[in-house]
């Protein structure tokens, strides 16, 4: 697991407890999180990786899994 994925997972496990989270776990499809979490996730990604999430990034597939978020960050840095 690369450093980015580790940092994303460290953040996620604070919210998603008692669940075996891997890089391909669909955190939205599984009903594991709520709407406020989604906002906190965006805030976290922006600050932690010094990126700006924009209108064009708003696709659920960019945020479903640790791998997807890692790809999004990769493409924005």
């Amino acid at each position: 697991m690369n450093d980015r994925k580790t940092r994303i997972k460290t953040f996620l496990v604070r919210y998603i407890r008692n669940y075996e989270l891997n890089d391909d776990t669909d955190i939205f499809g599984g009903g594991l999180v709520n709407s406020l979490f989604a906002m906190q996730l965006i805030t976290f990604l922006e600050k932690e990786f010094t990126i700006t999430i924009e209108d064009r990034d708003l696709k659920l597939d960019n945020f479903r899994t640790i791998n997807a978020m890692d790809n999004l960050i990769e493409n924005k840095t």
Partner: peptide, 17 residues
């Protein structure tokens, strides 16, 4: 504003916050 399906999160919540 934002894409369909993202009206409440993050668009609406940005305003409400």
């Amino acid at each position: 504003v934002g894409r369909a399906g993202f009206g409440f999160v993050p668009v609406g919540i940005t305003a409400l916050n």
